[in-house]
């Protein structure tokens, strides 16, 4: 039955687009293929549903009457100026950028939206071209990504179960952050009455978009950007002294500079700037024993903590 419904809805769009005046339900019922031969109740129900479906697609169906002096029956029409994509023109360079962008969501949750948007642009005469040399991807194959995205657009609250302590959260989502392939949603947690960030991959089960639409206001873009900045490594504030053996730990060596300071035999001392103790301790521990933190105590202790936890485990040969 799907093709029939598609035909009927498409015919309804064409009928309302072609209308010079508001069309009454009766007129629509007579004109549009697919509404004939139905009972009054069945027609009303079907027409309501079609109207809702089309409005969900963003089709601006207007309601009004042709004569405001008389209490005319309400009618419907679509104003071409509201419906049609205004003329667009993209330069060659912009079309290349769009051509590469076209594949960013291949196989991901936002693929249908990208395809639909690009279909419209191509219908308006845009030609997408791509060399295939550069293939950016953002990940996000979770269905939750698509739900959250549309919920923010319609400003519908979202509800989901979160892995942390297994709580159900209701959130007014403000924006999405994609950092190194990890998707976050940022917004106001209704229960805590405070902004919170959630990793979409820690959502258990589905994300539900709640009615009504337009339930809250979006803050300025800068609020989301500030939250994104908080995920980035903190600015450099201190310098650690790390002894590095040979060509190990290139990330630390590159950031640092060689010191003339004393170091264990076979090692060279480097001054390495850092912003976060945890981050530099992660790197120093990962490169052990080719990297040893000599100072400050805070970084050395954080590194030693990681090493002691691992050193205390039994080797496979030591197990009973």
């Amino acid at each position: 039955m799907a093709p029939r419904k598609t035909e009927r809805q498409l015919n309804l769009v064409i009928c309302l687009l072609a209308a010079r005046r508001y069309l009454t339900r009766e007129k629509i019922r007579d004109s549009v293929e697919g509404y004939q031969g139905l009972s009054d109740v069945a027609f009303q129900r079907m027409f309501e549903r079609d109207k809702d479906d089309l409005r969900d697609l963003g089709i601006p169906i207007e309601t009004g009457s042709n004569d405001s002096y008389f209490d005319d029956e309400q009618g419907y029409r679509i104003l071409p100026g509201d419906f049609e994509l205004p003329p667009v023109e993209f330069t060659q360079g912009e079309q290349v950028a769009l051509g590469i962008a076209a594949h960013v969501f291949d196989g991901a949750a936002l693929a249908p939206q990208a395809t639909s948007a690009l279909g419209k642009l191509q219908a308006a005469g845009v030609e997408l071209s791509t060399t295939g040399f550069v293939q950016p991807r953002l990940g996000g194959d979770d269905e939750a990504v698509g739900v959250v995205w549309e919920a923010i657009s319609g400003r519908r609250r979202i509800r989901f179960d979160y892995r942390e302590r297994g709580l159900t959260r209701v959130v007014e989502a403000w924006g999405v952050l994609v950092r190194r392939g990890v998707w976050y949603v940022y917004g106001r947690d209704r229960d805590r009455e405070a902004p919170r960030m959630f990793r979409l991959s820690r959502v258990v089960g589905v994300v539900e978009a709640l009615e009504p639409a337009q339930a809250y206001d979006l803050p300025d873009r800068s609020v989301v950007e500030a939250a994104a900045a908080s995920l980035e490594p903190t600015a450099v504030t201190d310098t650690a002294v790390v002894a590095i053996r040979g060509t190990a730990a290139p990330a630390l060596r590159r950031r640092g500079s060689v010191l003339s300071a004393a170091a264990p035999e076979g090692y060279t001392a480097y001054a390495v700037p850092y912003g976060s103790v945890q981050e530099i301790a992660d790197q120093a521990a990962a490169a052990a024993p080719d990297a040893l933190v000599l100072a400050p105590d805070e970084v050395r202790d954080a590194t030693l903590g990681r090493l002691r936890a691992v050193a205390g485990r039994l080797l496979s040969t030591e197990r009973p």
């Binding site: 697609l57 963003g58 089709i59 071409p80 509201d82 419906f83 049609e84 994509l85 205004p86 939206q113 990208a114 639909s116 948007a117 279909g119 419209k120 642009l121 219908a123 308006a124 995205w149 549309e150 923010i152 657009s153």
Partner: peptide, 9 residues
């Protein structure tokens, strides 16, 4: 002409 782009698109 195609339909306008939706904000989420």
């Amino acid at each position: 002409k195609p339909l306008r782009l939706a904000p989420h698109e």
